[in-house]
């Protein structure tokens, strides 16, 4: 009797485990089926490298290069801002902070992660956007930079908590060894702990970036959504995610525009898949 019970529970858990993979596969198949239908009418190179996005014109111009570059620019900006701050914060929490400060900071970071992105977007729209406009004397504050700053806030909790885990799991003997050799605290962090935790930190960075590139609501509210080829971070951009969110409601099921939005989804999927796989490789290298 106990054996049967054990067996049933084991199989049930197995089923739960398989379910997530099953759903991912289903989603991927659906995405491919709807997205690839576009390439019957539009060439892959025209889609990926076309510089004009006018989806509802006759004939429609479906070039997503400005959107890809827009997404990459915002993500790059957010990475430049969030990586140094995030890794620095993780170092402080893991190595330097006294226990009370540590608990306080960790709670704060978790709280930051809990703010819904639409709220961050709204705050950015009323505070950050006019500020960016005035500081840089721009015609409008709805720029890639505003998006990057706001997204950096969203990436930071991920980066800090995973990087902190990585730093924490460096064996204590390394640190003790470094101290025994007469190294200062900073020398130990810089020469011993950081290199030992590097793969975990890289994974943290990749996951943070993955979060940024998939973010939709905040970027849609503060980047201006103009589909231009960006040549400066102080210009408005349109990202892949914002394009899908803004236009999916309108696209008639089965139209070229609809398939194009799914194809944009495939591109996004490939980008974030690549980022996650890289992060995974780094994490496993660690072990």
């Amino acid at each position: 009797m106990r054996k049967i019970k054990e067996f049933i529970i084991e199989k049930l858990i197995l089923l739960c485990g398989l379910a997530s993979i099953f759903f991912v596969i289903l989603i991927f198949i659906f995405l491919l089926k709807e997205g690839l239908a576009l390439f019957k009418t539009v060439g892959v190179d025209k889609f990926l490298f076309g510089q004009k996005w006018y989806p509802i014109s006759e004939p429609a111009q479906l070039g997503i290069l400005p959107l890809i570059l827009g997404s990459l620019l915002v993500t790059f900006g957010a990475a430049v801002i969030s990586i140094p701050i995030g890794v620095g914060c993780a170092l402080y929490i893991a190595e330097i902070a006294p226990p009370k400060t540590k608990e306080f900071l960790k709670a704060g970071i978790e709280l930051l992660a809990a703010i819904p992105s639409v709220v961050l977007g709204f705050i950015g729209m009323v505070t950050l956007v006019p500020w960016v406009k005035n500081i840089f004397h721009l015609p409008t504050g709805l720029t890639a930079l505003s998006g990057s700053i706001m997204l950096a806030f969203m990436a930071m909790p991920t980066i800090v908590s995973i990087a902190e885990d990585a730093l924490y799991s460096v064996p204590k003997s390394y640190k003790e060894g470094a101290f025994a050799l007469g190294a200062t605290h900073w020398q130990t962090i810089h020469r011993v702990i950081l290199p030992a935790a590097s793969s975990g930190i890289l994974a943290a960075v990749m996951l943070g970036i993955g979060r940024v590139i998939g973010e939709t609501m905040a970027v849609m509210m503060i980047t201006g959504n103009a589909a231009i080829m960006p040549n400066s971070i102080l210009q408005p951009v349109r990202t892949l995610t914002a394009t899908i969110a803004a236009e999916m409601g309108e696209a008639v099921v089965g139209s070229e525009h609809y398939f194009a939005l799914f194809a944009v989804g495939i591109v996004l999927f490939i980008i974030s898949f690549a980022i996650n796989v890289t992060a995974d490789l780094f994490l496993h290298k660690n072990k």
Binding site: G224, A226, A227, M229, P236, A246
Partner: peptide, 8 residues
């Protein structure tokens, strides 16, 4: 113009 900001 592609530079036009698209607001929702």
């Amino acid at each position: 113009a592609p530079a036009a900001l698209m607001l929702s």
